[in-house]
Nucleic acid binder design. Structure first.
Length: 656
DNA sequence: GTCACTGATCACATT
DNA sequence: GATCAGTGAC
């Protein structure tokens, strides 16, 4: 995000030392200068928590701590590398040597060395969400579901239940009881499938996202030698966005800090928005229980937003049920209050937002990169996107479907995965099913054979024997070439797979020119990676953030507007922010209505959205929206906006 | 066994 | 709108 670079603070020349008191306020300074031992930084939105972390990293390095023994864990890998880059500008290039990444990427790194200690091979394959759903689907068919008449959960639902159980360290039965009691009638079958799923992953040397964390925790817990080794290697651990960690992650941290207790966590309980992934905002409140000698620092001065915006966001969060009490303040004054705007329908909402964006850009000279439109769910921006395209306003959308999840990209990746891990029968049966005349049965049989022998040999022979099918012969040639020629560069492998896949793509999809662009983009991605396993782990752990259509225009220099889900907007800021579809039933989502804890999370979500704004904030909603699922008509603004006094948040209505 | 068709059912956020 | 189970034609 280029946006963050604009907030870079100019500091002394490298080598001349950092003028900490000049660059930081008193509280930030206290956090940065904290010596050894556990440290909790409770940092409200926009209070400079990233800055504090960066200075703390630089300070540690300056104090002589070897950079490689500092571990910086963040929510996305991109934010880790950005922070380390900024630390490098601050101090010197030593900061680039600091280890940084997400919990998942760090776990991947460790497990690639030590997986055998917990009964896995080091060349395990990482399953993304869709892969794990597919495998669950296979297991679902393994058992005879006796309840033909009653509804049995679909594979997506099952995978979701298993994931919840893993992230919260609860049993599948407990999760079903609490989150899906309507499936209690078949809870035994669900538990059986979860067992089969677990075994299938172990047999095939596969790990899903949750496994990376779970196995990492097991490794640390049960192998004191490895734990000591790791804990000694990373003498200082810093964690960003601590409010969005789950139980397993908290345990990993406790174990990692075993040898030294040098653990710094930064977070804001008011911005915890990932409970569906098992995040416990209570982790941040429990930190001082886990580490009784922890020092706590509070950051409350906001440098981002003008006071009228803070007046609104403070009201929103003041009504939260459970929180660390804090009230943010800003020296940035201003007259303009945020606005709550109703539109008679979605179309008018889109027209209004597009009009205002043009106005801000043309009349007030705001760059498009200083403006963002935020929403609860990815589909809510479709209508606006049509309008933006009509007016030729360039934008990029974050959140929603990733291009990695599209069929053609998955096809290509499956070829590479098969070569990397012949026991990955998911990928193998996927590419076999692409052949004409090969369906479920035959692909599964062949994949099983490859699995048993841990080799593609028999599959290649079988394919070569299918004389009638030209396609089968081509696939055989491709696979045997890729497995035989050792030491091939990833780019070369990709080029061969693409050459093979291209005719299949053209035969299967009407819109193949567009999809071909995605594949070309992927080709350019793999140029950055040395080995095949590295590349595969990379694209699964850190898939390109922009959604599908944006692959077409990746030119970076163009000024563009940001459309984003609120979740994907975490940690970012813009001068002007529009929150669309702030309609009660959409934000908060209707599905949160009967659970108080979920409603509280919706409140925090609204809070995160509103606190992204520096100067201008507009909250809009369409009325008379018919919800087919429930048969209700939604017409009231989000309760989180509605309960704010009009003197702080004035109301406006658009009329057609 | 494979494939193309039908009608019923459920739909958020992401590493 | 996508997915799933069931059906019948090759």
């Amino acid at each position: 995000m280029t946006i963050r670079k604009y907030t870079l603070h100019p500091v002394a020349e490298p080598g001349t030392g950092i003028d900490y008191p000049k660059a930081l306020n008193e509280r930030q300074l206290e956090a940065v200068m904290h010596g050894d031992g556990p440290l909790l930084i409770v940092a409200g939105a926009g209070t400079g928590k990233t800055r504090t972390l960066i200075y703390r990293v630089a300070h540690l390095v300056e104090q002589g701590v070897p950079p490689a023994s500092i571990l910086l864990l963040t929510f996305t890998r991109r934010s880790a590398s950005e922070m380390l880059q900024r630390a490098s500008v601050l101090l010197d290039r030593r900061c680039e040597k600091v280890s940084g990444g997400t919990f998942h990427s760090f776990a991947n790194l460790v497990l690639r060395r030590h997986a055998s200690a917990i009964g896995f091979g080091e060349n395990f394959t990482i399953l993304d969400r869709a892969d794990s759903e597919e495998l669950v689907g296979l297991m679902r068919h393994e058992i005879d579901v006796a309840h033909k008449t009653l509804r049995f959960p679909r594979k997506e639902t099952l995978a979701d239940l298993f994931s919840r159980a893993a992230n919260r360290e609860e049993t599948v039965a407990e999760i079903v009881t609490r989150d899906a009691p309507h499936f209690l009638y078949c809870v035994d079958d669900i538990v059986r499938i979860s067992g089969l799923y677990r075994e299938a992953k172990r047999d095939r040397n596969l790990m899903d996202y949750d496994d990376l964390l779970l196995h990492m925790a097991t490794l640390l817990r049960e192998h004191a030698g490895i734990r000591r080794l790791l804990s000694e290697s990373y003498r200082h651990i810093l964690v960003d966005e601590y409010q969005d960690t789950n139980r397993v992650q908290a345990e990993i941290l406790r174990l990692m800090a075993d040898a030294h207790d040098n653990l710094t966590v930064v977070g804001d309980d008011a911005q915890s928005i990932y409970s569906f992934r098992g995040a416990r905002f209570r982790n941040i409140m429990d930190f001082t229980c886990d580490f009784p000698n922890a020092h706590t620092v509070w950051l409350e001065e906001n440098y981002r937003s003008r006071q009228p915006i803070l007046d609104v966001t403070n009201e929103v969060i003041a009504r939260a049920a459970e929180k660390f009490p804090k009230k943010l303040f800003s020296k940035r004054g201003g007259e303009d209050r945020p606005a709550l705007v109703s539109a008679p329908n979605e179309r008018t909402q889109s027209l209004f937002v597009a009009d205002r964006i043009v106005e801000l850009a043309e009349e007030q000279g705001l760059a498009l990169s200083e403006i963002a439109v935020l929403f609860r769910a990815a589909y809510l921006s479709f209508d606006l996107e049509v309008e933006l395209e009509k007016r030729h306003i360039p934008y990029r959308k974050f959140g929603g479907f990733k291009f990695l999840e599209t069929a053609h990209v998955k096809d290509v990746v499956a070829h590479l995965r098969t070569v990397d891990n012949p026991r990955d029968s998911l990928s193998l049966s996927r590419i076999l099913s692409l052949l004409p005349g090969v369906g479920k049965k035959r692909s599964a049989d062949l994949a099983r054979k490859a699995f048993e022998l841990a080799s593609l040999g028999p599959v290649i022979d079988a394919l070569a024997g299918m004389k009638k099918s030209d396609e089968a012969g081509r696939l055989a040639a491709l696979l045997s070439g890729l497995t035989r020629d050792h030491g091939l560069a990833v780019t070369e492998m990709m080029a061969r797979v693409l050459a093979h896949y291209r005719p299949i793509l053209e035969a299967r999809f009407d819109d193949f020119p567009r999809r071909l662009k995605d594949l070309e983009h992927m080709e350019s991605l793999c140029a950055r990676h040395g080995t095949l396993p590295e590349f595969l782990a990379e694209i699964t752990l850190e898939p390109p953030t922009a959604s599908v259509g944006d692959m077409v225009a990746p030119d970076t220099e163009e000024d563009y507007l940001t459309l984003s889900t609120i979740h994907s907007a975490k940690g970012l800021e813009w001068k002007a922010v529009f929150i669309i579809w702030a309609l009660d039933g959409k934000l908060p989502s209707l599905r949160a209505a009967d659970r108080e804890d979920e409603m509280e999370e919706e409140r925090r979500l609204f809070y995160v959205a509103a606190t992204r704004a520096k100067d201008i904030l507009a909250i809009t909603y369409p009325v008379n929206i018919f919800e087919r699922a429930t048969g209700t008509v939604l017409s009231t603004p989000s309760r989180f906006a509605d309960e704010i006094p009009a003197r702080l948040l004035p109301r406006y209505a658009l009329i057609d």
